[in-house]
């Protein structure tokens, strides 16, 4: 029942997402003659890629957030509170400075490599801090992210790339066209990989001792998770730009609804992630029509609101 409802909601959101925009597009227009041809063109070149990229990015970011939370055993961690996003941006900046003409795949790989290094550094710092409380973990991540982003900003400023930097750190789907979003399918493949490794990742979420006791190498599970998170983050930063809060809210909501057994929760996390991004994008396109408010801004507002509710509800639950 819940599944049916969620699927319907997703389909409706996708349809709305396809039909709204600066140029008129109606289902009726699509089937009629000349106008139809133009409409089909818009649909194929701009709308479908946009809607697809929204869905893919939303799913992937939510899944990446979940994996981060499993690896750190902390509910308040996601790629943007773990230095991952900042590291990816740094990688992107480096490759833009050194080899500005490189194809997008190369940029993505460079960003992923940096994201991996940054997140591994984050986990390493966590291991070195004794007696960590629940909130020190994301705080450490945010501080680390701050340091890395300071370095990035410094060089971006020096080399006059602040605008590009801004594009990477604020999610924006308005530039999505056919041929410029396909990299997101990499993120999709990574999600499928995460689903295959769902049991292992859930186990890692139970901690090193449980994982070892059940015969798994904790380190290799963590590495696998890290690679998935780093690559997902890198693809999203390269194609869309950062989507804040998504990786924080969706996993937490799903956790409250159906728990953290990832074999069961992952489809929900993906669906909810896609739905939330679609909804925020629709809001961003409608409130200031025909102009667009970047989705990063809307996500920030909607996300922080939801997050507050979640925190307060969580306290209720504990009491």
């Amino acid at each position: 029942m819940r599944l049916l409802l969620t699927t319907t909601a997703l389909i409706v959101l996708s349809l709305i997402s396809l039909l709204i925009g600066a140029s008129d597009l109606s289902l009726a227009g699509l089937v009629s003659g000349d106008e139809g041809q133009q409409a089909t063109q818009i649909l194929l070149v701009s709308r479908i890629p946009r809607t697809l990229s929204l869905i893919l990015a939303g799913m992937a970011m939510a899944v990446a957030g979940t994996i981060m939370q499993m690896l750190t055993q902390n509910r308040f961690v996601e790629p943007s509170t773990a230095g991952t996003v900042e590291s990816a941006s740094l990688g992107l900046l480096i490759v833009t400075l050194l080899a500005p003409e490189s194809p997008v795949v190369v940029k993505m790989v460079a960003a992923a490599a940096c994201a991996l290094a940054g997140t591994a550094l984050f986990l390493r710092i966590l291991r070195l801090i004794p007696l960590r409380s629940v909130l020190t973990v994301p705080l450490v991540g945010i501080m680390l992210g701050g340091v890395i982003s300071a370095i990035t900003t410094f060089f971006a400023y020096r080399f006059d790339l602040l605008q590009s930097l801004n594009a990477w750190t604020t999610g924006d789907f308005s530039g999505v066209l056919r041929g410029r979003y396909e990299l997101l399918w990499v993120a999709f493949a990574l999600m499928v990989l995460a689903y295959f490794a769902a049991d292992r990742l859930t186990l890692a979420g139970m901690g090193r001792d449980f994982t070892t006791n059940l015969g798994l190498r904790y380190r290799s599970v963590v590495s696998l998770g890290l690679v998935i998170v780093a690559m997902v983050t890198a693809t999203i930063v390269v194609t869309i730009g950062m989507l804040p809060f998504l990786g924080l809210i969706v996993p937490n909501v799903v956790s409250l609804m159906i728990g953290d057994n990832m074999r069961r929760s992952l489809p929900w996390i993906a669906a909810l992630g896609a739905g939330l991004v679609l909804a925020c994008d629709i809001i961003g396109r409608v409130v200031y029509y025909p102009y667009e408010v970047p989705i990063g801004t809307i996500m920030g507002i909607v996300g922080s609101g939801l997050f507050l509710i979640l925190l307060l509800k969580g306290r209720e639950r504990l009491a």
């Binding site: 499993m70 055993q73 902390n74 509910r75 769902a198 049991d199 292992r200 859930t202 186990l203 979420g205 139970m206 901690g207 001792d209 449980f210 006791n213 059940l214 015969g215 798994l216 956790s255 409250l256 728990g259 953290d260 057994n261 074999r263």
Partner: peptide
């Protein structure tokens, strides 16, 4: 098998989920 003291599982798992994970060495999920 080993159970250490002070186990804190941050994940929300049901009792059945947890116990079934005990089969991981055999079932691999």
């Amino acid at each position: 098998s080993i159970l250490r003291q002070d186990n804190r599982i941050a994940s929300r798992l049901t009792v059945r989920d947890l116990v079934e994970f005990g089969r991981y060495p055999y079932s691999k999920g």
